[in-house]
């Protein structure tokens, strides 16, 4: 199955999603550095093309399940920055009323079934959403995002097999950023291509350049069409990189221990997915530079408003501790 080349509208849509993620994450990084955010924060900077490319190939009623590095997935699926930011601040107006935080944002109204602090923990949930779509006879699909590290959890292997045997409309998107925390993937697995694991479960495995948003989009569109047509799951391995640390604040915590070389970091910056799509748009004269600049300003403004909203929002009331337990 092949997919048509993305239209101009789609390209701009993908770029907009990526830019939202970038500006949001930059702001979150700053807030964390200023000590304004509780807990742990894992940024998605450098990986925007994956979430944006995949989600642009989805319908609004499709499902996604995310990871500990989940802000990008929420935004790419159409999440509201204000409620996200408020959640990061632990405020009552946040997506989860302050009970979830950075690693547990969800927006069921847009099919975003939740981020997850347990590595690999979201993969079976996505299989369940795909099962539900199949059971109800809808043509929705369910995407699970997860990292290279998560591909070594049992949940990954069991989920692929289950989805494969049931031919479920599931799409497994492995964001291979080449590290699980501080351990490089080559020390955690003896293969180079995670996509190759698909063969063990009898489903297609595709490798895509995860810094090329349009390539991600195209690969996703193929997988989505397959899933909707009842032909079962696909494993997509998107080769990408995280420019941020594993978690914000890691410099202080690592106390001088290095795990990535200066050359590696420089190469990542050179392969920036956002700059790449920007170049594509400008080179193709798809849209004037000034208009892109305007878009950037609008988004930055929205991020600033989200921060203001989060700051002004109240802390959760103590009584809410017992709310949302049994129905």
């Amino acid at each position: 199955m092949s997919a048509p080349a993305p239209s101009f509208a789609t390209i701009l849509d993908i770029y907009t999603r990526m830019l939202k993620i970038r500006r949001f994450e930059e702001q979150v990084g700053q807030l964390f550095a200023q000590g304004q955010l509780p807990g742990f924060v894992h940024l998605y900077i450098g990986e925007e093309a994956v979430a944006a490319g995949v989600c642009a190939a989805l319908r609004d009623d499709d499902y996604i399940v995310s990871t500990h590095r989940g802000h990008g997935h929420v935004l790419a699926k159409g999440g509201d920055m204000r409620r996200m930011m408020a959640e990061l601040f632990g405020k009552a107006t946040g997506y989860c009323k302050g009970k979830g935080g950075s690693m547990h944002i969800a927006d069921f109204a847009i099919g975003m079934l939740g981020a997850c602090g347990i590595v690999g923990g979201g993969i079976p949930v996505a299989v369940g959403a795909a099962l539900s779509a199949w059971y109800r006879g809808s043509d929705q699909v369910a995407v699970s995002f997860f990292g290279d590290g998560a591909a070594n959890e049992g949940s990954f292997h069991e989920s692929l097999n289950l989805a494969s045997t049931m031919r479920l409309p599931a799409i497994f998107v492995c964001e291979n950023n080449q590290y699980g925390e501080f351990t490089p993937a080559h020390r955690a697995m003896n293969i180079r291509d995670i996509a190759g694991r698909a063969a063990g479960y009898g489903i297609p495995g595709v490798i895509v350049d995860g810094t090329d948003a349009l390539a991600v989009y195209t690969a996703s569109a193929v997988a989505v069409a397959r899933a909707r047509a009842g032909q079962g799951p696909t494993l997509i391995e998107a080769r990408t990189h995280r420019r941020s640390g594993h978690a914000e604040g890691e410099q202080a915590f690592l106390a001088g221990q290095e795990y990535r070389s200066a050359e590696e970091l420089a190469a990542m910056r050179a392969g920036d997915p956002l700059a790449r799509l920007h170049r594509t748009i400008v080179a193709g004269a798809l849209i004037p530079d000034a208009q892109l600049e305007e878009l950037d300003q609008t988004i930055s403004q929205a991020v600033a408003e989200a921060v203001a909203f989060a700051r002004q929002s109240p802390e959760p009331a103590l009584e809410s501790l017992y709310e949302d337990t049994w129905v």
Partner: peptide
């Protein structure tokens, strides 16, 4: 501890 999942908000976490 309170019979609830542990909430994120520092205020609620402390109360849990």
């Amino acid at each position: 501890g309170k019979p609830v999942p542990i909430p994120f908000s520092p205020v609620l976490e402390k109360a849990a």
